[in-house]
Amino acid sequence: MNRLSLKERFQLSRFFSGEKAVDEPVKLTHRRIFILPTYRGLNFAILTAFLLLMAFVYNNNLVYLLTFLLASIFFITILHSYKALAGLVLQKGQSKPVFAGEAAGFTIYINNPVDVERFNLQIKLEQPESLTIKPQSKTCVTLYSLTQKRGWHTAGTVTLSSTYPFGLFRVWSPIRFNLKALVYPKPSLQERPFPEMPSTNIQKGFSQKGTDDFYGLKGYQPGDSIKHIHWKAFAKGQGLFSKQYSSDSSEEIWLNYDNAPGHNTEERLSQLCRWVIDAERIGIPYGFSLPGLKLSPDNGTTHTRKCLEALALF
Protein backbone atom coordinates (compact mmCIF):
# COMPACT_ATOMS: atom_id res chain seq x y z
CA MET A 1 0.00 0.00 0.00
CA ASN A 2 1.32 3.34 -0.92
CA ARG A 3 2.18 5.76 1.82
CA LEU A 4 0.10 8.77 2.61
CA SER A 5 1.54 12.21 2.74
CA LEU A 6 1.08 14.17 5.92
CA LYS A 7 -1.48 16.40 4.30
CA GLU A 8 -3.48 13.45 3.04
CA ARG A 9 -3.32 11.82 6.41
CA PHE A 10 -5.15 14.66 8.07
CA GLN A 11 -7.69 15.25 5.39
CA LEU A 12 -11.11 15.08 6.92
CA SER A 13 -12.62 13.55 3.81
CA ARG A 14 -10.55 10.43 4.44
CA PHE A 15 -12.84 9.63 7.35
CA PHE A 16 -16.03 9.75 5.32
CA SER A 17 -15.34 9.29 1.68
CA GLY A 18 -12.13 7.34 1.83
CA GLU A 19 -8.85 7.71 0.07
CA LYS A 20 -8.48 8.22 -3.61
CA ALA A 21 -10.14 5.72 -5.83
CA VAL A 22 -8.28 2.51 -6.63
CA ASP A 23 -8.62 -0.58 -8.76
CA GLU A 24 -6.55 -2.98 -6.68
CA PRO A 25 -7.87 -4.98 -3.75
CA VAL A 26 -7.84 -3.05 -0.49
CA LYS A 27 -6.86 -4.61 2.79
CA LEU A 28 -8.45 -2.99 5.79
CA THR A 29 -5.85 -1.85 8.27
CA HIS A 30 -5.65 0.84 10.90
CA ARG A 31 -5.14 3.37 8.16
CA ARG A 32 -8.58 2.85 6.75
CA ILE A 33 -10.52 1.81 9.82
CA PHE A 34 -12.09 4.47 11.98
CA ILE A 35 -13.85 4.06 15.30
CA LEU A 36 -16.14 6.38 17.18
CA PRO A 37 -18.53 5.70 20.03
CA THR A 38 -22.15 5.58 19.04
CA TYR A 39 -24.90 7.48 20.76
CA ARG A 40 -25.48 4.32 22.76
CA GLY A 41 -21.82 4.15 23.64
CA LEU A 42 -21.97 7.65 25.05
CA ASN A 43 -24.98 6.65 27.13
CA PHE A 44 -23.02 3.68 28.37
CA ALA A 45 -20.28 6.06 29.49
CA ILE A 46 -22.92 8.06 31.36
CA LEU A 47 -24.10 4.82 32.96
CA THR A 48 -20.62 4.03 34.23
CA ALA A 49 -20.29 7.58 35.54
CA PHE A 50 -23.56 7.13 37.41
CA LEU A 51 -22.41 3.82 38.88
CA LEU A 52 -19.14 5.45 39.92
CA LEU A 53 -21.09 8.10 41.77
CA MET A 54 -23.15 5.38 43.41
CA ALA A 55 -20.02 3.55 44.51
CA PHE A 56 -18.53 6.76 45.79
CA VAL A 57 -21.55 7.83 47.81
CA TYR A 58 -22.06 4.45 49.41
CA ASN A 59 -18.37 3.69 49.49
CA ASN A 60 -19.26 0.28 48.18
CA ASN A 61 -16.36 -1.64 46.78
CA LEU A 62 -18.41 -4.09 44.79
CA VAL A 63 -20.20 -1.28 43.02
CA TYR A 64 -16.77 0.14 42.31
CA LEU A 65 -15.73 -3.21 40.93
CA LEU A 66 -18.82 -3.43 38.71
CA THR A 67 -18.21 0.10 37.50
CA PHE A 68 -14.62 -0.63 36.63
CA LEU A 69 -15.63 -3.84 34.94
CA LEU A 70 -18.11 -2.02 32.74
CA ALA A 71 -15.58 0.72 32.03
CA SER A 72 -13.01 -1.90 31.04
CA ILE A 73 -15.54 -3.61 28.82
CA PHE A 74 -16.24 -0.27 27.17
CA PHE A 75 -12.55 0.20 26.59
CA ILE A 76 -11.88 -3.33 25.34
CA THR A 77 -14.83 -3.08 22.99
CA ILE A 78 -12.73 -0.64 20.98
CA LEU A 79 -10.33 -3.46 20.20
CA HIS A 80 -13.13 -5.85 19.40
CA SER A 81 -14.76 -3.30 17.14
CA TYR A 82 -11.51 -2.82 15.29
CA LYS A 83 -11.20 -6.57 15.02
CA ALA A 84 -14.60 -6.72 13.37
CA LEU A 85 -13.15 -5.15 10.23
CA ALA A 86 -9.40 -5.55 10.41
CA GLY A 87 -7.83 -7.86 7.89
CA LEU A 88 -10.74 -7.98 5.47
CA VAL A 89 -9.76 -7.61 1.86
CA LEU A 90 -12.16 -5.82 -0.45
CA GLN A 91 -11.96 -6.13 -4.15
CA LYS A 92 -14.07 -4.64 -6.82
CA GLY A 93 -15.67 -6.92 -9.32
CA GLN A 94 -17.44 -6.30 -12.57
CA SER A 95 -20.38 -4.10 -13.16
CA LYS A 96 -22.98 -4.74 -15.78
CA PRO A 97 -24.36 -2.06 -18.05
CA VAL A 98 -27.87 -0.89 -17.31
CA PHE A 99 -30.48 1.37 -18.84
CA ALA A 100 -30.87 4.87 -17.48
CA GLY A 101 -33.19 5.00 -14.48
CA GLU A 102 -32.31 1.50 -13.37
CA ALA A 103 -29.98 0.71 -10.53
CA ALA A 104 -26.47 -0.16 -11.57
CA GLY A 105 -25.08 -3.10 -9.69
CA PHE A 106 -21.49 -3.17 -8.56
CA THR A 107 -20.06 -6.40 -7.31
CA ILE A 108 -17.69 -6.18 -4.37
CA TYR A 109 -15.79 -9.21 -3.18
CA ILE A 110 -14.98 -9.37 0.50
CA ASN A 111 -12.36 -11.85 1.52
CA ASN A 112 -11.96 -12.88 5.12
CA PRO A 113 -8.55 -14.54 5.17
CA VAL A 114 -8.38 -15.20 8.90
CA ASP A 115 -9.99 -17.52 11.39
CA VAL A 116 -12.44 -14.96 12.71
CA GLU A 117 -16.07 -14.88 11.83
CA ARG A 118 -17.35 -11.43 10.94
CA PHE A 119 -20.80 -10.83 12.27
CA ASN A 120 -23.23 -8.31 11.01
CA LEU A 121 -21.15 -6.18 8.73
CA GLN A 122 -22.97 -3.45 6.94
CA ILE A 123 -21.89 -2.47 3.51
CA LYS A 124 -23.36 0.58 1.98
CA LEU A 125 -23.21 2.36 -1.28
CA GLU A 126 -26.60 3.98 -1.32
CA GLN A 127 -28.58 1.47 0.65
CA PRO A 128 -27.09 -0.54 3.51
CA GLU A 129 -26.82 -4.26 3.13
CA SER A 130 -25.86 -6.53 5.99
CA LEU A 131 -23.79 -9.64 5.77
CA THR A 132 -21.91 -12.15 7.86
CA ILE A 133 -18.69 -13.69 6.65
CA LYS A 134 -17.51 -17.06 7.82
CA PRO A 135 -13.87 -17.58 8.79
CA GLN A 136 -11.53 -18.03 5.84
CA SER A 137 -14.11 -17.44 3.21
CA LYS A 138 -15.05 -15.03 0.55
CA THR A 139 -18.39 -13.50 -0.18
CA CYS A 140 -19.53 -11.19 -2.86
CA VAL A 141 -22.14 -8.56 -2.49
CA THR A 142 -23.78 -6.50 -5.17
CA LEU A 143 -24.42 -2.88 -4.34
CA TYR A 144 -26.81 -0.82 -6.33
CA SER A 145 -26.68 2.76 -7.31
CA LEU A 146 -29.53 4.49 -9.08
CA THR A 147 -28.61 5.92 -12.45
CA GLN A 148 -30.06 9.03 -14.01
CA LYS A 149 -28.31 9.74 -17.25
CA ARG A 150 -26.76 7.66 -19.98
CA GLY A 151 -22.99 7.51 -20.18
CA TRP A 152 -20.54 6.41 -17.57
CA HIS A 153 -22.04 6.20 -14.13
CA THR A 154 -19.49 6.36 -11.36
CA ALA A 155 -20.34 5.17 -7.88
CA GLY A 156 -19.06 6.93 -4.82
CA THR A 157 -17.68 5.57 -1.61
CA VAL A 158 -18.40 2.08 -0.38
CA THR A 159 -18.60 2.12 3.39
CA LEU A 160 -18.13 -1.06 5.35
CA SER A 161 -19.20 -0.70 8.94
CA SER A 162 -20.07 -2.69 12.01
CA THR A 163 -21.30 -2.12 15.53
CA TYR A 164 -20.33 -5.57 16.70
CA PRO A 165 -20.09 -6.67 19.53
CA PHE A 166 -22.12 -4.37 21.78
CA GLY A 167 -23.21 -1.49 19.63
CA LEU A 168 -21.18 0.89 21.77
CA PHE A 169 -18.81 1.77 18.98
CA ARG A 170 -19.26 2.09 15.29
CA VAL A 171 -16.28 1.06 13.27
CA TRP A 172 -16.28 1.99 9.65
CA SER A 173 -14.04 2.03 6.67
CA PRO A 174 -14.75 4.16 3.64
CA ILE A 175 -13.30 2.79 0.46
CA ARG A 176 -13.38 4.30 -2.95
CA PHE A 177 -12.99 2.04 -5.93
CA ASN A 178 -13.09 3.08 -9.52
CA LEU A 179 -16.61 1.83 -9.82
CA LYS A 180 -17.91 2.60 -13.26
CA ALA A 181 -20.93 1.24 -15.03
CA LEU A 182 -22.07 2.03 -18.51
CA VAL A 183 -25.58 3.41 -18.68
CA TYR A 184 -27.51 2.97 -21.88
CA PRO A 185 -30.21 5.46 -22.79
CA LYS A 186 -33.60 4.70 -21.40
CA PRO A 187 -35.52 2.86 -24.11
CA SER A 188 -38.42 4.89 -25.39
CA LEU A 189 -41.75 3.74 -24.08
CA GLN A 190 -43.44 4.22 -27.44
CA GLU A 191 -43.41 1.30 -29.79
CA ARG A 192 -42.74 2.67 -33.23
CA PRO A 193 -42.32 0.71 -36.45
CA PHE A 194 -38.79 0.34 -37.73
CA PRO A 195 -37.82 2.96 -40.23
CA GLU A 196 -38.46 2.04 -43.85
CA MET A 197 -35.27 2.20 -45.82
CA PRO A 198 -35.13 2.90 -49.52
CA SER A 199 -32.83 0.16 -50.70
CA THR A 200 -30.77 2.55 -52.78
CA ASN A 201 -29.84 4.35 -49.67
CA ILE A 202 -27.91 1.45 -48.25
CA GLN A 203 -26.41 0.36 -51.50
CA LYS A 204 -24.46 3.56 -51.50
CA GLY A 205 -20.89 3.42 -50.47
CA PHE A 206 -20.23 0.32 -48.55
CA SER A 207 -22.24 -2.62 -49.75
CA GLN A 208 -20.71 -4.71 -52.49
CA LYS A 209 -23.42 -7.26 -52.28
CA GLY A 210 -25.28 -8.17 -55.41
CA THR A 211 -28.13 -10.49 -56.07
CA ASP A 212 -25.65 -13.23 -56.90
CA ASP A 213 -23.77 -13.04 -53.66
CA PHE A 214 -24.51 -16.28 -51.98
CA TYR A 215 -25.02 -15.62 -48.31
CA GLY A 216 -26.18 -18.85 -46.76
CA LEU A 217 -28.93 -21.37 -46.43
CA LYS A 218 -32.10 -21.30 -44.49
CA GLY A 219 -34.95 -23.72 -44.09
CA TYR A 220 -37.50 -23.43 -46.87
CA GLN A 221 -40.58 -21.50 -46.07
CA PRO A 222 -43.62 -21.40 -48.32
CA GLY A 223 -43.38 -18.31 -50.40
CA ASP A 224 -39.65 -18.49 -50.96
CA SER A 225 -38.69 -18.12 -54.56
CA ILE A 226 -38.37 -21.45 -56.34
CA LYS A 227 -35.24 -20.11 -57.95
CA HIS A 228 -33.61 -20.04 -54.59
CA ILE A 229 -34.29 -23.60 -53.54
CA HIS A 230 -31.11 -25.63 -53.00
CA TRP A 231 -32.05 -28.47 -55.31
CA LYS A 232 -28.79 -30.28 -54.88
CA ALA A 233 -29.43 -30.87 -51.24
CA PHE A 234 -33.00 -31.83 -51.94
CA ALA A 235 -31.79 -34.45 -54.38
CA LYS A 236 -29.59 -35.95 -51.69
CA GLY A 237 -32.64 -36.29 -49.51
CA GLN A 238 -31.49 -33.59 -47.14
CA GLY A 239 -34.68 -31.57 -47.23
CA LEU A 240 -35.71 -28.27 -48.69
CA PHE A 241 -33.43 -25.28 -48.23
CA SER A 242 -33.57 -21.80 -49.60
CA LYS A 243 -30.43 -20.11 -50.72
CA GLN A 244 -30.07 -16.69 -49.38
CA TYR A 245 -28.37 -13.85 -51.11
CA SER A 246 -27.02 -10.82 -49.44
CA SER A 247 -29.17 -8.44 -51.45
CA ASP A 248 -32.15 -9.92 -49.67
CA SER A 249 -32.65 -6.67 -47.81
CA SER A 250 -36.26 -7.32 -47.02
CA GLU A 251 -35.10 -8.82 -43.70
CA GLU A 252 -32.63 -6.16 -42.90
CA ILE A 253 -33.13 -2.75 -41.43
CA TRP A 254 -31.03 0.25 -40.80
CA LEU A 255 -31.33 2.17 -37.59
CA ASN A 256 -30.18 5.65 -38.26
CA TYR A 257 -29.84 8.57 -35.95
CA ASP A 258 -31.17 10.97 -38.57
CA ASN A 259 -34.32 8.91 -39.06
CA ALA A 260 -35.09 8.56 -35.40
CA PRO A 261 -38.05 10.64 -34.32
CA GLY A 262 -37.65 12.96 -31.37
CA HIS A 263 -37.38 16.57 -30.43
CA ASN A 264 -33.87 16.42 -29.09
CA THR A 265 -30.84 14.21 -29.03
CA GLU A 266 -31.89 12.28 -25.95
CA GLU A 267 -35.28 11.41 -27.33
CA ARG A 268 -33.76 10.21 -30.56
CA LEU A 269 -31.18 8.09 -28.75
CA SER A 270 -33.93 6.73 -26.58
CA GLN A 271 -35.91 5.70 -29.63
CA LEU A 272 -32.85 4.16 -31.26
CA CYS A 273 -32.24 2.21 -28.11
CA ARG A 274 -35.75 0.87 -28.19
CA TRP A 275 -35.33 -0.16 -31.81
CA VAL A 276 -32.07 -1.95 -31.14
CA ILE A 277 -33.68 -3.97 -28.35
CA ASP A 278 -36.75 -4.75 -30.40
CA ALA A 279 -34.75 -5.71 -33.48
CA GLU A 280 -32.53 -7.99 -31.44
CA ARG A 281 -35.54 -9.62 -29.86
CA ILE A 282 -37.26 -10.23 -33.19
CA GLY A 283 -34.00 -11.36 -34.71
CA ILE A 284 -33.79 -9.08 -37.73
CA PRO A 285 -30.27 -8.16 -38.72
CA TYR A 286 -29.95 -4.47 -38.22
CA GLY A 287 -27.41 -1.95 -39.25
CA PHE A 288 -26.74 0.93 -37.00
CA SER A 289 -25.51 4.37 -37.69
CA LEU A 290 -24.78 7.38 -35.60
CA PRO A 291 -23.01 10.47 -36.82
CA GLY A 292 -19.43 9.30 -37.06
CA LEU A 293 -20.17 5.59 -36.67
CA LYS A 294 -21.60 2.92 -38.85
CA LEU A 295 -22.11 -0.71 -37.93
CA SER A 296 -23.06 -3.12 -40.65
CA PRO A 297 -26.22 -5.19 -40.17
CA ASP A 298 -25.81 -8.06 -37.78
CA ASN A 299 -27.38 -9.83 -34.85
CA GLY A 300 -26.21 -11.18 -31.56
CA THR A 301 -25.24 -9.93 -28.15
CA THR A 302 -21.92 -8.52 -29.26
CA HIS A 303 -23.58 -6.45 -31.95
CA THR A 304 -26.27 -5.26 -29.57
CA ARG A 305 -23.66 -4.35 -27.03
CA LYS A 306 -21.71 -2.37 -29.56
CA CYS A 307 -24.80 -0.45 -30.62
CA LEU A 308 -25.92 0.25 -27.07
CA GLU A 309 -22.42 1.28 -26.03
CA ALA A 310 -22.31 3.69 -28.92
CA LEU A 311 -25.67 5.10 -27.83
CA ALA A 312 -24.54 5.42 -24.26
CA LEU A 313 -21.38 7.28 -25.10
CA PHE A 314 -22.72 9.38 -27.93
Binding site: F214, Y215, G216, L217, H230, K232, A233, K236, G237, Q238, F241, K243
Partner: peptide, 15 residues
Amino acid sequence: TSDILPADIIGASVF
Protein backbone atom coordinates in the same frame (compact mmCIF):
# COMPACT_ATOMS: atom_id res chain seq x y z
CA THR B 1 -18.39 -23.72 -47.16
CA SER B 2 -21.54 -21.79 -46.85
CA ASP B 3 -23.60 -24.49 -48.50
CA ILE B 4 -22.26 -27.40 -46.55
CA LEU B 5 -24.95 -29.34 -44.75
CA PRO B 6 -24.76 -31.41 -41.56
CA ALA B 7 -25.19 -34.55 -43.65
CA ASP B 8 -22.13 -33.58 -45.63
CA ILE B 9 -20.13 -33.84 -42.43
CA ILE B 10 -21.62 -36.69 -40.49
CA GLY B 11 -22.96 -38.78 -43.34
CA ALA B 12 -26.45 -39.73 -44.33
CA SER B 13 -28.75 -42.67 -44.67
CA VAL B 14 -29.26 -43.38 -48.34
CA PHE B 15 -31.89 -45.67 -49.75
